[in-house]
Design a protein around this nucleic acid. Sequence first.
DNA 1: CAGCAACGCTAAAACATTTTAGCCGATCAT
DNA 2: ATGATCGGCTAAAATGTTTTAGCGTTGCTG
Lengths: 332, 332
Amino acid sequence: MKKNVTLNDIAQKLNVSVGLVSLVLRGKWKENRISEEMAKKVNKAAKDLGYKPNAMAQALRTGKSKIIGLIVADIANPFYGKIARIIENEAYNKGYQVIFGSSDEDLCKFEKVVEAMKSRQVDGLLVVPVIGSHEVLQAIQESNIPTISIDRYLTDAKLPYVVTDNYKGSYDIGLYLQQKGYQNIAFITKESPLSNFIERNKGFEQSMKDTGINYQKHALSVDNWNEELVQLIRDMDTSKVDAIYFAQNMLAVEGLKTVNALHSDELDKLAIISFDNPEIFEINRPTITCYQQPLQVLAEKAVQELINSIESKQSKDISLKIEGKLIIRQSC
Amino acid sequence: MKKNVTLNDIAQKLNVSVGLVSLVLRGKWKENRISEEMAKKVNKAAKDLGYKPNAMAQALRTGKSKIIGLIVADIANPFYGKIARIIENEAYNKGYQVIFGSSDEDLCKFEKVVEAMKSRQVDGLLVVPVIGSHEVLQAIQESNIPTISIDRYLTDAKLPYVVTDNYKGSYDIGLYLQQKGYQNIAFITKESPLSNFIERNKGFEQSMKDTGINYQKHALSVDNWNEELVQLIRDMDTSKVDAIYFAQNMLAVEGLKTVNALHSDELDKLAIISFDNPEIFEINRPTITCYQQPLQVLAEKAVQELINSIESKQSKDISLKIEGKLIIRQSC
DNA sequence: CAGCAACGCTAAAACATTTTAGCCGATCAT
DNA sequence: ATGATCGGCTAAAATGTTTTAGCGTTGCTG
């Protein structure tokens, strides 16, 4: 059982005070008139002994934990996995570490995770807000923990956010469908109060209006979309539809699963387009045309904004909507 | 800027000592002969003021951070995402939080992440070890931070591990192929010094020997498997092969992508079977038969073992190999 | 009646840091 | 000669907990 090396160990070895060691190791020896000779000795001793600062003690003393909390719906969902990956990278580069939790879209669990993170003294929070979480988030904000919404935002909370421009993306999908000459679109989406669906729905409906294309909107329920979707596709009247637009990767994945399982010539003739770009889209036969979210930029910006407001204490309330891009493949 | 409520705030409000408040709040008032009346007062005050313990201070004082570190190859890979998800859940249930990092299979990055986590005073570590990491892990072990390998293990490190029984899984795949009457298998795997590949390779080769089936082993290089795989499938002599076995999800995914892109009748006739069970396998046409790893059990056990050895300080060095199961679908 | 346990609490140390005030001698300007 | 400044360091407070030693009073036992 090796004890960790502390400042005290170094100080004793050199017969100096702990304070001095601390100052040197944090690079503040110049402004504190400590001799270069001494600085060198201290640094050497620290290296020799293998000193690693105790982050807990630092956190306690400074009030800064250098930890940021990340709350997503489900880290097992590759969409969030990818985001988490980028966030982790950015954060590490800036000397922060990431502690994560999944909410499962459940308010109760979301609140628990927030509490746990608050207790951990996270310096800031990156959250994918769940329905009804505005109060918790407002509270967190007031206890002065900078918080940024990602992926979606709540209209009833005054949180800064960094999200994809869902309206524009969905609108552009409509334009693309027009350009390709489709006339009757089955628009499969969810009836959700979350910003991303609201905007995707608005955007697409507006572009349908502007282009004059026929479409049928199927807004599935948040709780039971899964079964409803299977039913919907099973019963689809393929004579009245020439393209399907899935407004989300989960819808598309489940949809493709059903389509492929049914193996019907009529269904196979339909064009397919989707929001999001899961890996499956490149493997499916045909490969699927989609609107890819700018995950890299989104996650980077979110971390940057968060760390900015952590370190400068000026919550500038800058919110961002970032454009993604259409990826054209075989299906449409 | 609301300050956090501390023990001191409660103590002052009630005109008692901090120690007493601490004792009560941690449920130790009985064994410390504190009156029930007082205990109630304290609890009420704590609730009223909204007291949340400062985990940093607790950690500093007790030497237990209640944080476990999780290092995977890439959290964006759904395989690890799923594991992370289960680990997170288990850990939260036991009062631990999870801090994560991705190694990218890069030793240097792995070491950095380990250092960062050690500095954070993690109580224990769950790692997917990368090639060459035995020294770092040995060192970590010696500084008395319980560590468990998951997914794979290093033969040259004496770490406990919790992994799938890769040998058995791969052997069973061979048996299944025999049962289905396949005669010429293309066995696509990687030439890796990591335990999972070593055992999958051994297991399959043994079962080929035992069953007497013809097979060709294609062990791709760890660094360039991607391109090699595309080439391999492109050049495959379909007259001499009736089934392909992919020894890993990444191989299968890339393989299916290539197969589907080539759209060749001969390739389509081949049976396909794979280790792992990514979501795509259920969507692909045909759906893919595979050996599914017991992720739930694996991750749960790993967390349990880890927390055991954190809390009891007896590193029992129990290592586990857990069986997965064959999932039979259309492709084979 | 001496000794002792029980009671209900307090005080203080300890954890590893960071940061500020200040000490002492020497140099410098006035 | 006086006062100020500076160089190089130390001492100590502070962060929010947990834990142990112990204090003064009662009541009981032998």
